[in-house]
Write a protein that binds this DNA or RNA. Structure first.
Ligand SMILES: NC(=O)c1ccc[n+]([C@@H]2O[C@H](COP(=O)([O-])OP(=O)(O)OC[C@H]3O[C@@H](n4cnc5c(N)ncnc54)[C@H](O)[C@@H]3O)[C@@H](O)[C@H]2O)c1
Ligand SMILES: NC(=O)c1ccc[n+]([C@@H]2O[C@H](COP(=O)([O-])OP(=O)(O)OC[C@H]3O[C@@H](n4cnc5c(N)ncnc54)[C@H](O)[C@@H]3O)[C@@H](O)[C@H]2O)c1
Lengths: 211, 211
DNA sequence: AGTATATTGTGATTTTTTTCACAGAAAGAA
DNA sequence: TTCTTTCTGTGAAAAAAATCACAATATACT
């Protein structure tokens, strides 16, 4: 077995969301070009991505929605689901918590952490806010492997190291700095500012440049 | 002139942030490998990216921090800066507003919009919340070209179309659906859930797969 | 002045990702 | 049954991005 290309994973996650919508609407089959239109990519790309999950379609009826969802779930999910920690229970953290609580069955935030004594003990969305002192203990008890990092930039590197120390193996990083970690740790950056700057640049470029 | 590769733009934005930190610490020169270490990429890539901005270094002293920042600003910024609209002033929007207010000089959120009458007229971070009815008027008056979209998924497509109608040319989309828009509109997606699913997948893959 | 050294700038190469294009297959029509 | 259509699955080609590798060069040292 081989690890699937990054981009394909992202698209598969998107396909799954779209397929679930189709399923709710009662659609039983889809063609690669239907998915492509919905996801904003090409049909060839959809088929290539779907090859990865080992689910095949039928030249006349396309792919079975249910079957496809299952195949993608097999790749993306574990049957038991994964626990996630949210570290830094500030403005952003407080927006993210209910958002994930609403959407996800298989990826559930089961603990939040903060250094501010006022926040510790607070319970929201069925999830307690713990002190940073109890990080290692709680993460081990709840068997958490993944963390969402939303602490101030000044402490992000240090907190990330604490997380690794506590056996966290993957981080979704909202802090606008590149974390310096051993490269067996998975880090996925959500750099909001960079994304906005990119939009601004591309928008301007689209106007100025006659390509 | 040619539009620069997407990935380079992202990295350049990151370099600029890092360079500004260096500048604040009094550093005057950097080598490509310094920046590479800080940004988590390779020195060759840094040099390639910097070629794009047309700023050259010196084989013995490296690049001048100040000069480099200027060159990157020339590419990424307009001298006057850009106004940005935030559409959907809910949980996420309320977290994003102060975040951008704090950080950005050149990209400033100057108006927020919401359909909820209770939110309209609310002022925070020097920025008023307007009704959707006044969208076109306010966006035109303030000469806004870029919007951040944080409305519920159900209405996102429709709201996006209103934005285009109001002459918005670029959208930073936080809504987890792929917007279907004419492709002269720049759309940059921030799909938080997808990113978390990717972290979960890669974390698991790193453990299971002996590559 | 000449030499040693470390870095830049950039062609060439490799790797990764996307697109093309078409053989093979399933279903319905005649 | 056979023909037609429209799709899938995938090898091959193209495009995009990253890496390699090295000549050119600026500085410090002798
Ligand atoms: N607010 C946004 O919309 C937004 C968007 C993108 C990125 N970010 C980034 O996310 C991070 C958080 O942003 P925010 O707006 O929520 O800030 P915030 O100040 O509201 O929240 C930060 C939280 O981290 C806690 N904290 C501080 N030091 C800590 C430590 N050592 N260990 C654990 N917790 C600690 C604070 O008590 C606070 O609750 C920042 O790095 C910011 O740049 C924020
Ligand atoms: N909360 C998060 O952390 C988070 C993270 C990632 C993505 N998102 C996405 O961002 C979007 C907003 O999330 P949220 O948590 O802020 O939700 P929210 O319900 O708190 O905010 C949505 C806001 O949009 C407004 N709105 C509704 N219909 C509108 C319309 N037609 N025109 C203009 N405004 C309208 C609502 O009044 C509300 O203020 C959602 O699509 C969500 O999936 C949220």
């Amino acid at each position: 077995m081989k690890t699937s290309p990054n981009k394909s994973i992202e698209r598969l996650s998107m396909y799954r969301r779209l397929l679930r919508e189709s399923e709710n609407e009662g659609t039983e089959n889809v063609y690669s070009h239907d998915l492509a239109d919905a996801a904003g990519c090409t049909a060839a790309q959809v088929r290539r991505d779907l090859m990865l999950v080992g689910c095949s379609g039928n030249p006349k009826t396309g792919y079975q929605v249910k079957g496809l969802i299952n195949c993608i779930c097999n790749l993306l999910d574990t049957p038991e689901g994964d626990s996630v920690a949210l570290v830094g229970f500030g403005n952003l953290g407080k927006a993210l918590l209910p958002f994930f609580a609403k959407h996800h069955k298989k990826l559930v935030i089961t603990a939040t952490f903060d250094s501010n004594p006022k926040k510790i003990g607070e319970i929201s969305n069925g999830c307690e806010c713990y002190s940073m002192e109890s990080l290692k203990k709680v993460i081990s008890e709840k068997n958490i492997k993944i963390a969402i990092l939303t602490v101030p930039a000044e402490v992000a590197q240090e907190v990330a190291e604490q997380l690794i120390e506590a056996n966290i193996q993957g981080i979704l990083n909202f802090v606008p700095i590149p974390l310096q970690l051993k490269n067996n740790i998975i880090v996925e950056n959500m750099h909001v500012e960079i994304a906005l700057e990119k939009v601004a640049y591309l928008t301007r470029a689209a106007n100025t440049i006659t390509d």
